[in-house]
């Protein structure tokens, strides 16, 4: 682009960067390579080098022997995962279920919230609601989860309220039936306001003339919502849905890690928490790496498919 624009304006003094032999082009761009070098070095050291460590998924890794000298064992760890141990299906099930519950119950909330907010004409009130509801997004899950736990412990706020109403106390955090609903509800509470931003941006980009002509045609507010607003933000909704589905193996590591305890492993243990526990706490490096590799490969394929699907739909793609 720069080459042609410089050419079109006819300024010969400006180097036309797109032209010349490869070596002269490289020489002309040498400062850019110097600038790019730190970033490339970083990716090499912290993203590419770890790929080598993936080989231990096919080895019996021992930290004392090192990656290179550990013995190759082929698919032993994958066999153990997929065939011999019941752990893996529990993990996969928990991961998928928690993600899907978050999707089903959580995905519509920011859309509804943005639509409500968009109807507010008093900008002071609108700003106030935004300021309040965006805030929890900036808190870590350690902090927000800490607040949640403070409400749910046997002596917490909710049980104290139960107590004063003469109801039996409940142990929310160790109840296998309540763990997933609590995870889903709290993740919605923390991020619904923040996630609405993208829809608010889409809503503010809708052409006001569409509303004016709809009104001329006698459309009431429901008609406007149904025939102007929703079709207008539908591309953004489908974009977010596709991106969300491509992350289906992420159920929210930090949230679940901080809020989980051993009594709810059966319903709460997800791929990421298992990898951490097996690998770093119990020293089963190879097994944990095999699980991580499974997740990484599936996740990569999903994201690549999502991106090409978006391109084929003529949508903004992820990259």
């Amino acid at each position: 682009m720069s080459g042609t624009s410089a050419g079109l304006t006819g300024r010969e003094t400006v180097s036309i960067r797109g032209e010349g032999t490869l070596s002269s082009r490289i020489r002309r761009h040498r400062w850019l390579y110097v600038l790019l070098l730190p970033t490339l070095a970083y990716f090499f050291m912290f993203s590419i080098l770890p790929y080598y460590g993936l080989s231990i998924a096919f080895k019996d890794f021992s930290p004392f022997v090192g990656i290179a000298d550990s013995k190759w064992v082929g698919l032993k760890h994958f066999r153990r995962l997929f065939v011999e141990s019941p752990d893996f299906y529990r993990l996969l099930r928990n991961t998928l279920l928690i993600h899907l519950y978050k999707l089903i119950f959580g995905f519509p909330v920011p859309i509804l919230f943005a639509l409500l907010l968009n109807e507010v004409r008093k900008s002071f009130f609108k700003r106030f609601v935004q300021t309040v509801t965006y805030f929890p997004h900036f808190l870590s899950w350690v902090i927000y989860g800490g607040i949640v736990v403070n409400f749910l412990t046997p002596t917490g706020v909710i049980n104290s309220t139960f107590d004063s109403l003469g109801m039996e106390p409940m142990n929310f955090l160790t109840d296998t039936g309540l763990f997933r609903p609590i995870i889903v509800a709290t993740s919605i509470m923390k991020d619904f306001g923040w996630s609405a931003i993208i829809y608010l941006a889409a809503l503010s980009g809708l052409n006001p003339e569409l509303y004016d002509s709809a009104k001329v045609d006698g459309a009431n507010r429901y008609h406007q919502l149904r025939y102007v607003t929703l079709p207008g933000i539908m591309p953004m909704i489908s974009l977010m849905l596709i991106i969300n589905l491509s992350n289906i193996l992420d159920a929210g590591f930090e949230q679940i890690y901080v809020m989980m305890n051993p009594s709810v492993y059966a319903v709460g243990d997800i791929i990421d928490t298992y990898v951490y526990r097996m690998g770093l706490e119990m020293g089963q490096f190879s097994l944990a790496t095999a699980v991580g590799l499974f997740k990484g490969v599936i996740g990569f394929l999903l994201v690549v498919s999502a991106n090409s699907l978006l391109r084929r739909l003529g949508q903004r793609s992820i990259w």
């Binding site: 460590g53 944990a288 991580g292 990484g296 690549v304």
Partner: peptide, 15 residues
């Protein structure tokens, strides 16, 4: 590629 394919926790840790 590095954005979408992460080696994961354990290889990252060993690195």
């Amino acid at each position: 590629v590095v954005m979408n394919f992460n080696a994961g926790l354990i290889p990252g840790y060993l690195n």
